Simulated scan of single mutants.
Amino acid sequence: MIEPSASARTVVDASPDVVYALVSDPPKMSELTEELDRATWLGGVGEAAVGARFRGHNRRAWRRWSTTATVTDAEPGRRFAFEVSSFAGIPVSRWQYDIVAAGVGCVVEERTWDRRPAWFRPFANLVTGVRDRADQNQRNMEHTLARLKSAVEAARG
């Protein structure tokens, strides 16, 4: 696989299973992310499994758009990943969380790959209001992982 267009990592003082339970729950993760405002599982599914799909309702300031994601990797305590597409099935991105045990906690790495066709990028930039998607995703990931770390560690008490 080619290099990701953006990535970030953090160390979390919690087990890989605890972190996986959060990152593999898109409705819950929407509370921690910059652009994902809300997520809903599709087709009667309620948890992560390869092939499961969810709709992402995204927001940046006054701009709003929706995407559909299909889970490609669901390995408890290790990896959660999904492919995102826009209307008409146009590929948008791949998002992946890798979790590795480290001491009493774990390292969480979030990565994304931009999969948008060149002809689709100007339209997507207009809809989202983002000209440099890689840079924006990098900043978004750093904020998301900081919130994830805080949420998981606060829950441990």
Rank of each mutant, 00 (worst) to 15 (best):
I2Q: 11
A8G: 13
T10L: 01
D13T: 07
S15D: 07
P16A: 06
V18P: 00
V18N: 04
V19F: 01
V23K: 06
S24T: 08
P26W: 12
M29F: 07
S30M: 07
L32E: 12
E35V: 07
A39R: 04
W41S: 06
L42V: 12
L42S: 04
G44Y: 13
V45F: 01
E47Y: 00
V50M: 02
V50T: 14
A52W: 03
A52L: 04
R53D: 03
R59H: 10
A61K: 14
W62K: 13
W62Q: 14
W65L: 14
W65S: 07
T68A: 10
T70L: 09
D73N: 06
G77A: 10
G77R: 07
R78E: 08
F80K: 02
S86C: 12
S86I: 04
I90Y: 00
W95C: 02
W95L: 09
Q96F: 04
Q96A: 14
D98E: 14
I99P: 00
V100A: 15
A101S: 12
A102K: 15
V104T: 15
G105A: 03
V108S: 07
W113H: 04
P117W: 11
F120L: 07
P122E: 12
P122D: 05
N125Q: 15
L126E: 08
T128L: 13
V130W: 09
V130G: 01
D132V: 02
A134L: 08
R139Y: 03
E142H: 08
L145W: 03
L145S: 05
K149D: 06
A155V: 05
G157D: 10
